[in-house]
Design a binder for these strands. Structure first.
Lengths: 231, 231
DNA sequence: CGCGGCTTTGATGTTCATCAAGTAAAGTGG
DNA sequence: CCACTTTACTTGATGAACATCAAAGCCGCG
């Protein structure tokens, strides 16, 4: 777990453009004074399940997976979070300990702010509170809807769906490197590793995608979208 | 949609004991003045998908299902909400229109408060904001965890799981009347109506439960819990 | 009374997980 | 740097789990 702290000003930070818009200069200064920035490499654990929730974590850049451990060492991935997301937004205000783990899928830097400071800002600054609630609401909605959507699809539909998320939401390109292994895709969309591979191979055979190791190129977007909807 | 308004004082209301604890007398008075109480009968629609979000809704008593419509008239149920829950807590701060519908599974009464008033309370009263965020966080966590748990279970495990939720969380008794049809159970735990019935019959045959129409009695709790965990 | 929705059971076929076996890639220690 | 081990990837064969189809009884409601 390589964890290097870096000093930087909050001036150009994305944070300001998200919820921190509602903070005045004094508030920003206190956040700025309190916060640390941490960098992680692919594979590093950022948050460990069952650890005490003491801090509020914001994803500045990179990519992370949010997951939980289930029986016999297996893992269930519930979301892949992209920059500008408050990754610890799930249990953070209701629980004492994390219910999920978070680890880096890529070079990732996060901002860490003490939860007490955030709570005092919520109490003293209503607009900040409202902005944060909006974020929480969006975040939860997205995860819940994604889950519901996946549940009603067959395996081909799920693979198509997740490829489209990588393409449209995460990389905004029809050609991208998968940030996860086949096994992790399986853990994310609830199927076996073998079937992930099998169906990717099918899609390649049918000239819907090109595969080169981790690299995926979507050749026939229309068909992929059809499969995503209609299995 | 039978919707009768009733006047009542907020004095003995559950609301106070949940988040409204943090409200002072003046705030309570303004909530009290603004709010309406509505009653619904089994089957009544309380919130319609795609309707504009203008109000904040709190479930005082009864039972409701939160669901969404998918292709060819099918429905997917994402949660059954019990009293003391803010049923509109999902999209309410992030979206302009509801993404889900809510309908009564039983005689139900809800409190309706204008969203603007709630927002102004959030802004003016930090502790209220914090309390509400706690509620939102718990609510989302519960739905997400329930979904993840269901996903990894086989059909027998899912039926056992949902029976235990009815027994422990909702009715707090080992004998209860199902508030939903077999079909709705299927929509809630993602399987077919036929298999819901088949597995309930299996459980009866194995003396794990007794069935009498909608009435269920859990005879062998231990075994049901085992099935819920290990399929 | 009859119609439509809910419930139930059985038979059948499809989808998917599991098992097995092999190749490729990537990390590890001498 | 190379042998060695481990982990990721891939394909095929098999069987189990599950959805679908079909048919019939039941119940409430107009």
């Amino acid at each position: 777990m390589s964890e290097n702290e870096i000093q930087c000003s909050c001036e150009g930070c994305h944070l300001k453009t998200v919820v921190y818009n509602s903070l005045n200069d004094a508030d920003i200064l206190s956040v700025c004074g309190d916060r640390r920035e941490c960098r992680y490499s692919k594979g590093d654990v950022i948050i460990e399940e069952n650890a005490e929730i003491k801090e509020f974590i914001y994803l500045k850049s990179g990519l992370v997976k949010i997951f939980r451990k289930v029986a016999d060492g297996r893992e269930q991935i519930l979301n892949i979070a992209t920059p500008m997301e408050f990754v610890s937004l799930l249990s953070v205000f209701s629980e004492k300990y994390y219910k999920f783990s978070i680890s880096a899928l890529d070079e990732t830097s996060v901002c860490v702010i003490s939860l007490d400071l955030i709570k005092s800002l919520i109490i003293s600054n209503g607009n900040f509170a409202l902005g944060l609630m909006e974020k929480m609401s969006k975040n939860a909605d997205k995860i819940i809807l994604q889950n519901l959507s996946l549940n009603m699809k067959n395996l081909r539909g799920r693979i198509a769906y997740i490829l489209l998320i990588f393409s449209k939401d995460i990389y905004k390109s029809e050609c991208f490197d998968l940030p996860v292994s086949r096994k992790e895709i399986a853990q994310l969309i609830d199927m076996t590793t073998e079937n992930v591979i099998r169906i990717l191979s099918e899609f390649r055979r049918d000239n819907i995608i090109k595969i080169n190791g981790k690299n995926i190129e979507i050749v026939n977007l229309k068909v992929l979208e059809q499969i995503s909807i209609h299995g």
